[in-house]
């Protein structure tokens, strides 16, 4: 059992294969230790976020969830944010490592806004209930069907005097409920234990993320890249108007000036690492940004390559390992 709400869980519980199988075919729980989270309250909270990030969120209704990208004035990625409107306040999920930077940036731009920030990472915990059977299992966890949120919505409920917020995001392209509770949570921990829902480690989650082509902070999401290169089109509004970095992002899209694209890779030789070069017929076209072993002699990864590269013969790393590519 993990004793901290931010420390790293194990890489696997039974085995990577078993964890992955449970995730994809059944239902499992993962600790959301990679999320930073904070509250934004005040009447200008949504309007401010709308002025400094890519998605149109000033019209986000109560209990709706949206995804947006905070960018620099050069249109580069600060972080990918999950915004949950709970009516009187917003709950924001960031990458744990990016939380301070995101909060500082919001604070910087809020000089004349009615906005208050409160970091709740240390006092809360997140459990992710994931898998194709998650929509059935969540009903038992939350005791009542009416407590279960639809996709991209949130519910705030109380079980045994404990306030719990449940969000359905399906962020790795399988049914996913994120359950935010106070830390430590007696209710959620005991329910998971009594229902014998298996836990999964970080490696199976990483396989799932890479297979879904979901970019992660520190790998695909950083100030080296812009949100179009990262394939975050669903989190960008090209109609909303001004936000920090908008002119650059709009220009890249309008004039088709995006230089790189994110792709999926798979290969069967060990030794490939994050940062290894991707070659097309001996020409450098990009680099590996994430990689993981899916099973014995089967590896998958993500990488940025120059757009419109020839993908017929792809090799990666010093040993020029042959790889296949898949568009995201």
């Amino acid at each position: 059992m993990i004793t901290s709400n931010t420390c790293d869980p194990p890489k696997f519980y039974v085995s990577i294969e078993q964890d992955y199988c449970t995730l994809t075919k059944e239902v499992a729980v993962a600790y959301g230790t990679k999320f930073g989270r904070f509250w934004i309250s005040g009447k200008d909270a949504l309007d401010l976020l709308n002025r400094i990030s890519t998605q149109q969120i000033d019209n986000l209704k109560q209990n709706e969830v949206s995804f947006t990208v905070q960018t620099t004035n050069k249109g580069r990625i600060i972080d990918f944010l999950t915004v949950i409107n709970l009516g009187d306040r917003l709950l924001i999920f960031t990458a744990l490592e990016a939380k301070e930077r995101v909060m500082e940036s919001i604070d910087f731009f809020s000089f004349d806004d009615d906005v208050r920030l409160h970091d709740c990472t240390a006092e809360t915990q997140i459990h992710q209930l994931m898998g194709h059977k998650a929509p059935i299992k969540i009903m038992s966890v939350l005791e009542d069907e009416s407590n279960v949120p639809d996709l991209f919505t949130a519910k705030e409920i109380i079980i045994n005097n404990e306030k719990i917020i449940i969000i359905r995001t399906d962020r790795a392209k399988i049914p996913t409920y994120e359950i935010l509770s106070t830390y430590p949570s007696k209710v959620i921990d005991s329910k998971i234990k009594s229902m014998k829902i298996p836990f999964v480690g970080t490696e199976a989650l990483e396989i799932l993320r890479i297979e879904a082509g979901v970019p992660a902070y520190g790998s695909e999401l950083s100030e080296k890249f812009n949100p179009i290169e990262a394939g975050l089109f669903n989190s960008i509004s090209f109609e909303k108007g001004c936000y920090v970095g908008q002119e650059v992002v709009a220009r890249l899209n309008t004039y088709d000036k995006v230089k790189r694209e994110l792709i999926r890779l798979n290969w069967s030789e060990p030794g490939i690492q994050k940062g290894d070069i991707i070659f097309s017929k001996d020409k450098e076209i990009g680099e590996v940004t994430s990689c993981v072993m899916k099973m014995n002699r089967s590896y998958i990864g993500l990488g940025y390559i120059t757009r419109n590269s020839n993908l017929d013969v792809i090799k990666i790393g010093l040993n020029k390992v042959s790889a296949n590519t898949l568009k995201i």
Binding site: D44, L48, N50, R51, I52, N73, F108, F109, S110, F111, D112, D113, C242, Y243, V244, G245, Q246, E247
Partner: peptide, 12 residues
């Protein structure tokens, strides 16, 4: 007439 943080150039 006011100025708020945000927008393409940082202030709106």
């Amino acid at each position: 007439v006011a100025v708020k943080g945000g927008g393409c150039s940082g202030l709106t």
